[in-house]
Amino acid sequence: MTSLPAPPERQLGLVIDLDTCVGCHACAVNCKQWNSGGVAAPLTDLDPYGAAPDGVWFNRIHSFEAGEGAAGRTVHFPRSCLHCAEPACVTVCPTGASYKRAEDGIVLVDESKCIGCKLCSWACPYGAREFDVDAGVMKKCTLCIDRIYNENLAPAERVPACVATCPVGARHFGDLGDPASKVSRLVADRGGFDLMPELGYRPTNKYLPPRRTTGCSVAQAVPPEAPAAAGVLEGKLFGWLDRLFSR
């Protein structure tokens, strides 16, 4: 059913810390690996050893430069489905293949219903839909629905593959519908934001901005000395004569 369910109480999603992401692609490849055997398998690769390799990936790492000079930054920017609250990718779907789960807000594709019209990919402003040309169906990030509820995994491992693997800990998973959750508090504390809020999709996933502070209090840092004049060495050496410390 592509009409949206009543706003779910639980809104599972990701919080991605752009201040910490080093752009290593671990999350992207681990996502590919997990999902290659998961509910959306295979993530087909075309011409894998050829001149124009192209495959299905649920998570891709972009990079940007923002600002100029000393204020400028390079920002690595992972992007996967944001599990929007108002996902037009769902409402445009003519078959009901694309749906948003009432219980946790996860947006999924039921491949058995998908006719591969690709309309949802045009409706997604975030480029999160992945058409599997070989299978003729649309695929996308499942928020690792086959991990987060998987009773065959130890409870601590029931998090998305991309979150479990991120070496710097730039990815967080949780219930963004619950203002008291760890992820919600992180968003509140760090000024997490929505991508393209003007389009009104109300993404569940949030991004944390790069920090602006230097992270170190240097308020009382030693004032710089005047540039050396002649005799500096002698003066210093003399001054250090009494620096005696026993071994």
Partner: peptide, 16 residues
Amino acid sequence: KRPQTLRYGAWFRDAG
């Protein structure tokens, strides 16, 4: 010979 298409893992899903 290099494969033209890789569908790695399709079988896991069918099994699952």
